[in-house]
């Protein structure tokens, strides 16, 4: 299992690097779609069918919106000249990456290895959850019963984002 996920992740990393360096914005957007659909396969292998359904639909809608925006404006990537300032940014970026990687490596030492996860707090959410919520889909039980506050906050964020986009696009700019 670990090997399969690693191979798919390797392809996803290649797709991500291509998306950042493509000369054409349309191919960059489509390479991002490659990363997203690779994630769907990983979710299916990791026994998360709910996430796979949501991700495949959301990825398609995101691609439609981004392709519409790119086709509406311009497809050409900017002419990037490599000056002193971008060199400085790149060096600072790699120092930050090294620091972040050090802390991340320290953090994953305390994690269980892949596949040996021990249910600590989530034990209540798995065993005896069907009697408490009545829902045999445990993810829905967590979403709408044990952790319904999170769902309410998420719905409010979605509502706010829709109203924000409506306000941004419908207001008249200064001429």
């Amino acid at each position: 299992m670990e090997l399969t996920i690693s191979i798919i992740l390797g392809f996803m990393i290649i797709g991500a690097i291509y998306a950042l360096h493509a000369k054409d914005l349309l191919s960059a957007v489509i390479a991002m779609g490659f990363v997203g659909y690779g994630l769907v396969i990983c979710f299916l292998l990791l026994k998360a069918p709910d996430l796979a359904i949501v991700q495949i639909v959301v990825e398609t809608i995101t691609l439609v919106i981004m392709v519409a925006v790119v086709l509406d404006s311009t497809r050409k990537e900017l002419e990037v000249s490599f000056d002193r300032r971008s060199l400085l940014t790149t060096i600072a970026g790699f120092i930050i990456f090294a620091g972040l990687f050090y802390f991340f490596y320290g953090a994953i030492q305390n994690l269980d290895p892949l596949g040996m996860h021990s249910l600590r707090m989530a034990e209540t959410y798995v065993y005896g959850a069907v009697e408490k919520t009545g829902s045999i889909n445990l993810v829905t039980g967590v979403l709408f019963d044990f952790r319904a506050y999170d769902t309410l906050g998420e719905a409010v964020i979605l509502y706010t984002a829709a109203l924000g986009a409506l306000t941004l696009l419908r207001m008249k700019g200064k001429k």
Partner: peptide, 10 residues
């Protein structure tokens, strides 16, 4: 498998 991280990611 643990349903809690899946609900968070959803």
């Amino acid at each position: 498998v643990d349903p809690l991280p899946q609900a968070m990611a959803l």
